[in-house]
Write a protein that binds this DNA or RNA. Sequence first.
DNA 1: ACACGCACTGAACACGCGTTTAGTCTGCTG
DNA 2: CAGCAGACTAAACGCGTGTTCAGTGCGTGT
Lengths: 218, 218
Amino acid sequence: MRSASDDLTARARIRDTAIAAFARDGYDAASLRAIAREAGVSPALIVHHFGDKNALRTVCDDYVVGVFIDEDHDLIVAPTRDRIRTALHDLERYGPYIDYLARMLVDGSPAADRLFDSFLSNTRDVLAEQRDAGMLEPMSDPEMTTLLLTLIGLGPVVMRAQIARTLGMDQLSPAGLLRTTLPTLELLTHGIYSTTALLDGARDALAAEGHTPGGDAS
Amino acid sequence: MRSASDDLTARARIRDTAIAAFARDGYDAASLRAIAREAGVSPALIVHHFGDKNALRTVCDDYVVGVFIDEDHDLIVAPTRDRIRTALHDLERYGPYIDYLARMLVDGSPAADRLFDSFLSNTRDVLAEQRDAGMLEPMSDPEMTTLLLTLIGLGPVVMRAQIARTLGMDQLSPAGLLRTTLPTLELLTHGIYSTTALLDGARDALAAEGHTPGGDAS
DNA sequence: ACACGCACTGAACACGCGTTTAGTCTGCTG
DNA sequence: CAGCAGACTAAACGCGTGTTCAGTGCGTGT
């Protein structure tokens, strides 16, 4: 388990260890001493390389953000035939950082904001692309729908542990992904309701509240 | 600000203060001393009443779980005309505990498991009811869809801060709720895709992987 | 060979933490 | 009134934390 990381510089090894520790235990509960022990260095060396614990966190944040932002990844929406394969491949690449990402998103660090915005605009781009291709239903509030879809993509990431417990398997394992794909796509293409009664009712109710629909039905 | 809680017993005041502090700062970062100061008591009194910090946490967990579970609430799925009103009312009731709930769900405390299971089975019940009423599209994997819908309901709760930042308003405010309702219902009744190409593609791809659909198309 | 720089360490420091202890005050019960 | 019980506190204890400090050893350039 150590041989793989022996060739890394101590600085990189500390960073990787810290990312794992922060993801596993949370920022507060992960002590410099524990990280140092795990990385095979002294606590003082961490300070020597990074300044202080908070700076180490920032470096980890930026690194993880880089992993998720660097390349164009459509992790979130609409896997088609070959996308499924790439998703399975991406698993290995993103796997170690998923839990870190989850903690970032709820802790509300500045880096998390950047990341969320990036996911959001990625969703927006994919949606625009699909709209141009004539694949989309009209929607009353495209921006809000974009946000909604981003949340739907991120929800499983953030609540990964709960899903794993419920499902009896990791949703981010190959098997879990396969099980998730079909119901998700069904939801996105049919919705779940065969009647528009609920939607119509809400439209009426909102109109009665004096609410005017937000966007254009493109 | 204190007059409202002066009539509470010290024990209840400590519990309420602790819930707010845990929600705001997280369990680790919220110190007994800070909670005590905020509640106007000595740290020792907290120990006197609750035993230790972890027991205090358990009491808070149970209390919050009770708030969300006690009564039948369909916070998650399908607001229709009058449900919108009750949702707005529920806001005040659940508001103070939303952030606490969010932290529970990602920290993975045992109480969170109970809560998640309760939400899940609530979603399942609502779905079964609607299926009996003939309102639902057929779905290939009902249990997985139930999980998906629960996640969709909980996602905005857990990532409340990100949404508020993106939207420029609290999504759990009346205005935010109104803005969210319509796009959500649109998604649930139409989906977003006007073509079944993506879904069909995924079905083919999954079949090629040797995957057989999970549930019955009821 | 020497000196400089840099990765690195062990020991210590101050601090805040959860918790304990010993004790005070108050209100009730006999 | 005595005495008990329980709410409540000030002070202290031990500990683990992030951080600092003084120093060691090694590799490199001169």
